[in-house]
C-alpha cells in the first residue's frame, strides 16, 4: 500500500474517531465547545499517529516504497479532493442559511463540524475506492 492510500485510510479512521469522541463527550458536558475541540484534537492526533506508525511498519518492509508517490496518487488525491469540495460547499451554504435565520451558535458550529467530518469521510471513501477499484 502506497503512502497516499495509507493516508486516506488514516483520514477515514480519524473521521470516525472524531465523531465517536464528540458523540461520547457531548451529553456529558455543559457546553458544545469543549467536546468539539477535544474531538477535533483527538481526530488530528489519531490521524498523525496512524500515519506515523503505519509508515514505520511499511518502511520496515520496503523503505523506498513506503514514501513513494506518483501521478496516479496525484490523480486519486484530486478526485477525492473534488468530492470533499462539494460537501464543504454544501456545508458552507447550510451555515449561511442558518446564520440568515438567526440560528444559535450551537447549530452553526455543528453544521460546519458535520460538514468537515462528512467531507473527510466522503473524500476518504472516494480515494480508497479509487485505489481499490480503479480510476479511469
Amino acid at each position: 500500500m502506497v503512502f497516499h492510500e495509507r493516508a486516506a485510510w488514516a483520514g477515514l479512521i480519524a473521521a470516525v474517531v472524531t465523531v465517536g469522541v464528540y458523540i461520547w463527550l457531548l451529553p456529558r458536558a455543559d457546553a458544545w465547545v469543549g467536546p468539539m475541540l477535544w474531538a477535533i484534537g483527538t481526530g488530528i492526533a489519531v490521524s498523525i499517529l496512524i500515519t506515523i506508525l503505519w509508515g514505520i511498519a511499511a518502511g520496515i518492509r520496503d523503505r523506498e516504497a513506503a514514501t513513494a508517490s506518483d501521478l496516479r496518487d496525484r490523480d486519486i488525491s484530486r478526485y477525492g479532493g473534488r468530492a470533499e469540495y462539494v460537501v464543504l460547499v454544501i456545508a458552507g451554504l447550510v451555515v449561511i442559511v442558518l446564520c440568515a435565520l438567526g440560528a444559535e451558535g450551537f447549530w452553526v458550529a455543528n453544521a460546519m463540524f458535520a460538514g468537515f467530518v462528512l467531507a473527510a469521510v466522503i473524500g476518504g471513501l472516494a480515494r480508497v475506492i479509487a485505489y481499490r477499484r480503479g480510476l479511469a
Binding site: 502506497v2 492510500e5 516504497a65 513513494a68 506518483d70 501521478l71 496516479r72 496518487d73 480503479g134 480510476l135
Partner: peptide
C-alpha cells in the same frame, strides 16, 4: 510505484 504499474496492468488505471 509498483502499485501504479499493477493498476495499469490490471486495467484499473
Amino acid at each position: 510505484t509498483r502499485q501504479t504499474l499493477l493498476a495499469i496492468e490490471g486495467e484499473k488505471y
